[in-house]
Structure formats: structure tokens, C-alpha cells
């Protein structure tokens, strides 16, 4: 997709092939980078004001969220740090039942970052914003010395309007709630890992990064307060989200391993690397806790609206409060715990 954009909008000529400290000085180089780069690509009325901040009015209940993006490598199969930074914050707002409206965008660039890479990331940001229907209305660019960063860090914050029917939150969760997920798990983490130094392996697995709010808003339109809780299963994967849910309340969670969709290639890579897909990061998977009698219809809606592999993977129960217990594919039962640290590859 970013190729298409580049064809329509070729990279402008910059004075340097790579970012240098001058691009963060606030002087002429900064202005040129912003004028020919950022402003031109992301242009909108509010950004064009070039003020210290954006001034706007928004009616109704609002949601506000922020996230920083430090992924390495910065370009990976299926995306890059740019679309990740847009989708991530859009999704955090979506999990609050909100449609993202405006974003802030802050770059921390490392001296030496190739201009072509910066342009590629900027193009992806533009594409992701357009796809999500969100605007970047304020931002910042800083440059740090070589060795003081990891090419590029991005922070985005977002404001969104909460759907009128949304009644999402910890207090809405009750025993009997059904747990659904929209897509197969673990693709993003494995796509990233396939490029990490020492682990390089050939695969066609791509990151699942995407904006989820279209789906969430549609479900809220259709099912309103039957949706009890939403959370995107990013860092720590599905297992960590479910543990947070279980540990926060006075309920337990029952999980059915055989229902959890995992792409065959992803599953194979996890076997090879000694990783449990339940703990591998996602960027396009959300966990939905819904009222039991609406679950079947919600599942059908998801499956017929772009998520063919959406699945019911478990339920909230009054028993074993604080614990996630999974029925294994062969019928055994075991606890699914919180990960104590990073998953480390095993010896053999």
C-alpha cells in the first residue's frame, strides 16, 4: 500500500540523505523537514495553523489515550513503526468504545536515520490515518545524537468520541460473559521475531497491524451494552489480557485451547522457537467480553464483516477467581499464568 502512495507522492528533495542534529535544532533544517515533509504529507486545516497546539471543539463524551512506539526492527513484514503508531492509539481509543478523531504525533529521530526510511514511515502514517479516518493535528520532532536512540521512536496521543451506546468497563463484566477474539493470534510478534538478529528465518508471516475501530463501532451500533469489555491483546498477548481481566475482578476465566485460532505458519514458528503463542504480541487482535445471549450473533457479525476467523474462546466464570484456566486441546486442564518477564527461547 505504501508503494502506491509513494508513486502518487514522490519523496521531496531534502538537503541531506540522512537525519542530522540540525533537523531538530528548530532552525532552517527543521523548517525544511517539516515544510517539505511532515506538513505537506499530513496536511489538514488544524495542522496548517502551525500553532503550538491544536484548538478544536468536540461534543459528547471523549476518550483520550497515549502510547509510545519503540519497535525494532522499525520496518517489518506487514507494516512499520509509522502505521503501528497510528493504529495502536486508534485501537486503544476503540477499546474505550471511541472513534479516534485527532492524533498528536511526536518523533524522536536518531541522527543518521536515512531520509528514505523517514519518508517511508511518514507515508505509512498518512496511509494509516486515511484508512482510520483520523487526523494528525499537532506534533513535535526531536533529534538525538547517534547511539542515543534506536533510529526512530514515535509517540502518538489521541482523542476520540465515545459511542453513545458504549457501556464498556471492568464493572460491566459478569460471570457468564462470553469471550470472543476477532482474528488469529501471535502473527505480529512472530513477524517481528523473524527479523531479529540471530533468529532470522524465512517466512511469509506478516504483522496483523490494523485499525480495529470500524469493527468495534459497528458492533456497538448493533449490540450496544451487550458488549461488556474490550481490550487489544498487544504486549504479552492474549494470555496477559485475560489474566488482567481475571485478576482485576472477582471472577475466573475458562479458556478453550481448541477454539483459539493460530495461523499454521505462526504456530510452526512458535514450535520452532519454543514460544507459547498465547503470550506473543498482536497488533490487530482484540478481546471482547459480551453478554452470553448475544455472543452467537456478535460472532456472526464479526465473521461476516472481515474477520472470518473470529471465535468464541472462553467465558467468565464465578469459580477460581483471579485465575485463567484453559482446557487443553486434548481435554486436560491447566492454569494460564501471567508471564514473569520476556519469553526467552529454550535450549532444545
Amino acid at each position: 500500500m505504501s508503494d502506491t502512495f509513494q508513486l502518487q507522492c514522490p519523496m521531496p528533495t531534502f538537503d541531506f540523505d540522512a537525519i542530522n542534529l540540525g533537523h531538530g535544532s528548530g532552525g532552517i533544517l527543521s523548517q525544511r523537514l517539516l515544510n517539505s515533509g511532515v506538513f505537506d504529507v499530513l496536511k489538514n486545516d488544524m495542522l496548517n495553523e502551525r500553532h503550538d497546539g491544536a484548538v478544536f471543539e468536540l461534543p459528547g463524551k471523549l476518550a483520550f489515550s497515549t502510547d509510545s512506539y519503540v519497535v525494532s526492527p522499525i520496518i517489518f513484514p506487514g507494516g512499520n513503526i509509522g502505521d503501528l503508531a497510528v493504529n495502536g492509539t486508534v485501537n486503544d481509543l476503540a477499546m474505550c468504545g471511541a472513534k479516534a478523531k485527532y492524533l498528536s504525533l511526536s518523533f524522536i529521530l536518531e541522527e543518521g536515520l536515512p531520509m528514505t526510511t523517514f519518508w517511508q514511515i511518514l507515508s505509512s502514517i498518512k496511509m494509516a490515518c486515511d484508512a482510520a479516518g483520523v487526523q494528525v493535528v499537532t506534533g513535535d520532532t526531536k533529534v538525538v545524537e547517534r547511539g542515543k536512540g534506536d533510529q526512530i521512536f514515535i509517540n502518538t496521543s489521541g482523542i476520540g468520541q465515545v459511542h453513545a451506546k458504549a457501556a464498556l468497563g471492568w464493572s460491566s463484566i459478569v460471570p457468564g460473559d462470553v469471550i470472543l477474539i476477532n482474528a488469529p493470534i501471535a502473527a505480529h510478534g512472530i513477524a517481528i521475531m523473524s527479523l531479529r538478529s540471530g533468529l532470522e528465518f524465512e517466512t511469509s508471516i506478516t504483522s496483523d497491524t490494523c485499525a480495529l475501530h470500524h469493527t468495534v463501532l459497528q458492533l456497538l451500533d448493533e449490540y450496544g451494552d451487550a458488549l461488556h469489555f474490550l481490550r487489544d491483546a498487544t504486549r504479552g498477548g492474549l494470555a496477559s489480557v485475560l489474566n488482567e481481566i481475571a485478576k482485576d475482578g472477582s471472577q475466573g476465566i475458562e479458556l478453550l485451547q481448541k477454539n483459539i485460532p493460530v495461523d499454521e505458519q505462526v504456530s510452526g514458528a512458535c514450535e520452532m522457537l519454543g514460544l507459547d503463542p498465547l503470550y506473543v504480541a498482536n497488533e490487530g487482535v482484540f478481546v471482547l467480553l459480551a453478554k452470553a445471549d448475544a455472543a452467537a450473533n456478535i460472532l456472526r457479525s464479526m465473521q461476516s464483516n472481515g474477520w472470518p476467523q473470529a471465535a468464541i474462546v472462553g467465558k467468565v466464570v464465578a469459580e477460581h477467581a483471579g485465575q485463567v484456566i484453559m482446557q487443553s486441546s486434548i481435554g486436560g486442564r491447566r492454569v494460564v499464568n501471567m508471564l514473569p518477564g520476556e519469553q526467552l527461547p529454550r535450549i532444545c
Binding site: Q327, S328, S329, I330, G331, G332, R333, R334
Partner: peptide, 8 residues
């Protein structure tokens, strides 16, 4: 342990 076999 992971597959819950011990209890079966």
C-alpha cells in the same frame, strides 16, 4: 503439565 495430562 501444560497439556493437563497429570490430572488425567
Amino acid at each position: 503439565v501444560k497439556n493437563g495430562i497429570l490430572n488425567m
